[in-house]
C-alpha cells in the first residue's frame, strides 16, 4: 500500500470515489434501450393480448373478462375472413413481384449503360414520395373516364372497367401501386450487393464459357441471398403494415374487396370503437408476423452463404 509503485499509480489515476460492479454497469448501459422497448413495444403487445380476452369498455361499464368470446366472434366474422384472404392474395402478389422487379432493375442499372445515374434516380424516386402522395397520383391514373389509363386505352378503343370501383380489379390496382412504390427501394439494396461482387468472377465464368443466365443462377443469385432474405423480410412486413393507399384510394371497398388486415383493425378500433375486437385482430396479425420472422431466420439462414 505504501510502496513507490502505488504512489505513482495514485498520482496518475485518482481512485474512484464510489465503485459500480460490472453487472450494475452493464444494466445501466442497457437501461435507456430497455425503457424505450418496454414502454413502446413490449408493454403494448402484452396489453393487447390481455385486452383481447376482455370486452370493450363502454361509458360506465368497465371491461369484463369474456375469455375466448372475441376470438369466436372473429372466426364467425365473414369480413375478417375476407380481410385475411385479401391480405394473402395481396402479399403473395406484391412480395414476389416487388422482389423480382427490384432485382431486374438492379441488374440493369448495374451494367454499363448510357444514362445510368438518371435511370437509378428515376427507379428510386417512388421511394422518396410519401405513400399518401403516391396514392393520390395513382387515383388519377385509375379515375374512370378521364384517368390516364382510360385515356390511353380509350384512344386504342379498348373497353375499360371502373378500375377501383370493380370488385375484380380493385385489389389488383392496389397491388400495382405497392409494387411501383417499393421496387425502387429494394433495388438499392440489390444494387449495393451487386457492386460487392467482384467483376473478375464474371470474367472467370466467361472464360469457362458460362452463359449470362448460368452465371446468374450459379454465382450472382447465391451471392445475393443475404440481401434477398433481408428484402424478403421487409417486403413481408410492408405487405401487412402499409395501408395508406387503401385509406386514400378505396376505403376497403367495393364490398370489402380491398380490405387488408391492418385496415380492418383500424376500422374496428377507430371507426367502430370496438377496441377489444381490434385487439383480438391485432393478436392474429402479430402471430402471423412472428411466425414468418421465425421461419425466415431459422430455416433460410442456414442455407445462406454469408461473406
Amino acid at each position: 500500500m505504501h510502496g513507490p509503485e502505488t504512489k505513482l499509480a495514485t498520482a496518475v489515476v485518482p481512485p474512484p470515489r464510489w465503485r459500480v460492479s460490472p453487472q450494475i454497469h452493464g444494466w445501466l448501459l442497457l437501461l435507456p434501450a430497455s425503457v424505450l422497448l418496454a414502454t413502446f413495444t413490449h408493454f403494448p403487445a402484452v396489453a393487447t393480448i390481455i385486452d383481447s380476452f376482455y370486452s370493450t369498455p363502454k361509458g360506465r361499464r368497465a371491461a369484463v373478462l369474456v375469455g375466448a368470446d372475441n376470438y369466436q366472434a372473429m372466426l364467425a366474422d365473414p369480413v375478417f375472413w375476407r380481410a385475411v384472404s385479401n391480405n394473402i392474395v395481396y402479399a403473395a402478389s406484391v412480395i414476389p413481384l416487388t422482389m423480382a422487379l427490384a432485382l431486374a432493375m438492379a441488374l440493369w442499372v448495374n451494367g454499363r449503360i448510357p444514362g445510368r445515374p438518371f435511370l437509378r434516380l428515376s427507379f428510386f424516386t417512388p421511394t422518396v414520395l410519401p405513400m399518401i402522395a403516391v396514392a393520390n397520383i395513382w387515383l388519377f391514373f385509375y379515375a374512370p373516364g378521364y384517368g390516364l389509363l382510360d385515356q390511353m386505352l380509350g384512344a386504342l378503343g379498348v373497353p375499360t372497367p371502373n378500375w377501383l370501383g370493380d370488385q375484380h380489379t380493385a385489389l389488383i390496382c392496389l397491388i400495382a401501386v405497392a409494387v411501383w412504390k417499393d421496387a425502387g427501394f429494394f433495388m438499392i439494396f440489390y444494387l449495393a450487393a451487386l457492386q460487392q461482387v467482384s467483376p473478375q468472377l464474371a470474367e472467370a465464368a466467361a472464360i469457362e464459357g458460362a452463359s449470362r443466365w448460368y452465371f446468374f443462377r450459379r454465382v450472382t443469385f447465391p451471392l445475393l441471398m443475404p440481401t434477398t432474405l433481408f428484402v424478403l423480410i421487409n417486403a413481408i412486413i410492408n405487405s401487412f403494415r402499409l395501408i395508406d393507399h387503401v385509406v386514400v384510394m378505396t376505403q376497403g371497398g367495393p364490398d370489402n374487396a380491398t380490405a387488408l388486415l391492418l385496415f380492418y383493425i383500424y376500422e374496428a378500433g377507430f371507426k367502430f370503437w370496438d377496441t377489444a375486437y381490434a385487439a383480438t385482430l391485432t393478436v392474429v396479425l402479430l402471430a402471423l408476423l412472428a411466425f414468418f420472422a421465425l421461419g425466415q431466420f431459422v430455416v433460410l439462414d442456414r442455407r445462406i452463404h454469408y461473406q
Partner: peptide
C-alpha cells in the same frame, strides 16, 4: 473468351 481454348488465373484468384 470461351472459344479461344484458354484457361486463366487471376491476380485475385476470382
Amino acid at each position: 473468351p470461351a472459344q479461344r481454348r484458354i484457361a486463366m488465373v487471376f491476380q485475385s484468384y476470382a
